[in-house]
Design a protein around this nucleic acid. Structure first.
Lengths: 232, 232
DNA sequence: AAAGGGGAAGGACATATGTCCCGGCAATGG
DNA sequence: CCATTGCCGGGACATATGTCCTTCCCCTTT
């Protein structure tokens, strides 16, 4: 993570997403712009939550780790989205880990200033409400999707999510074996079973396997299989 | 549903849950107290959402119906809880069906008055935020639970939820065959498989099967099996 | 170059869950 | 009282997924 000290850029993001009116004047000086590299963690489960972030560019994945050490994917998010909102409202430690899957830009503000200047600000509260409510709605769908569809569909959906960012440009299309292990954990299945499904995808010409990992070949085919993408 | 025209009772509920300060004076005259019978629907998926309800007594179950006609349980709720909050914030039709599983008392207020008198009220907005955020948190856990545990555990959990109300008093302990069919849909499995699991429960002495349906025999045993109850 | 180590893919088997269907029992109507 | 209908429990089989373990390949070390 590194801070981008560019006031003009920060303002232009706020104008682009029409969020400049959400932060009252006293809050403005405490807004900062941050850049995260691909693979970097924005926040980690269990750690104290200090900042509220507004995702304005790039894509992140949100996942949780169970007591037994299994990880489970919760969602992928693209702008406009909030990170750390639940923790801010509940006053708890970070609930889920958030990782950048493409280069990510965020507006960050320390909870201290929000408590001081925004906790009575109805425009800001309404914005929080809207975002959290939408998140809740998405999670409801995700729950349904996960219980109703087999690993095959979830994997297709996962591959689409990590291969393309919010502008739909190809990120890599290439997934190393290491990241595949993650992927298995993330969609809630065993590595073994995932291999089975990958093999099936190879036979169907959807992806290709090489010494480096696997490569997405037929994006449209995957999309057809995934129907509706759960993870975003 | 029937309205209970008892101002004193309404006020005593509000005092008991310390929510009297949430509704500003203009809103007060528009609060009504409603009673729902066991089995009655509070709201139904797809219908326009008009009221925000505050659950102050009893227990409800929340479930969703997929395009293919499968129903899936989302949660059980006990006081203090809101019904219709997501719909109010998003301005959408009812997302999930909510049904009373015990006699239920709710405070209801039409969205029209909320929009008029409460949309800038930061105390009320903060309350909404808190409740919805908690809901979101619970749903995250539920998602994890559903993906990590087999039908056996979910069924035990379900039986506990529908057999006992919020004061933990026994509701019926008896589940008719008809309601079992629902149960299967609700926990996201086939009726056939549920029967298998019930048979297993019988062998283990957890429940008993008779001509009328099944009867919970060993509540503690079920609780042990369910670990942590997902549905509430 | 030979030997060893580590990780990844896939075989073999076990378990969980779904689908189809049949036989029995109870309610209903004649 | 008997025949019909419909629902329910459970058998048989199919499919999805998990677990364990062996084999193979690549890389490092000697």
């Amino acid at each position: 993570m590194k801070e981008i000290k560019n006031r003009e850029q920060l303002n232009s993001f706020m104008r682009a997403y029409k969020i400049d009116c959400l932060f009252n004047p006293q809050l403005m000086p405490h807004l900062k712009l941050y850049q995260f590299n691909r693979g970097e963690n924005i926040c980690s489960q269990g750690e104290p939550s200090e900042y509220l972030y507004v995702l304005v560019k790039g894509k992140v994945k949100v996942f949780t780790t169970s007591p037994e050490g299994k990880t489970l994917i919760l969602s992928f998010k693209t702008p406009l989205e909030l990170i750390g909102d639940i923790e801010y409202v509940r006053g708890t430690d970070t609930v889920n880990t958030v990782e950048a899957v493409s280069p990510v830009t965020m507006i960050g503000v320390h909870q201290r200033w929000l408590k001081k200047y925004a906790s009575e600000d109805s425009a800001f509260l309404q914005f929080l409400l809207k975002i959290i409510t939408d998140k809740f709605y998405v999670k409801s769908n995700s729950l349904r999707f996960n219980l109703l569809y087999p690993v095959e569909v979830r994997l297709a959906s996962y591959l689409l999510s990590v291969s393309f960012d919010e502008s739909n440009s190809l990120l890599t299309g290439q997934h190393s074996a290491g990241s595949l292990k993650d992927a298995a954990n993330l969609i809630g299945t065993s590595y073994r079973h995932m291999n089975r499904v990958i093999r099936q995808f190879c036979n169907e010409g959807l992806v290709d396997r090489n010494s480096k990992g696997i490569l997405v070949k037929d994006r449209e085919g995957l999309r057809r299989l995934a129907n509706d993408n759960i993870y975003e």
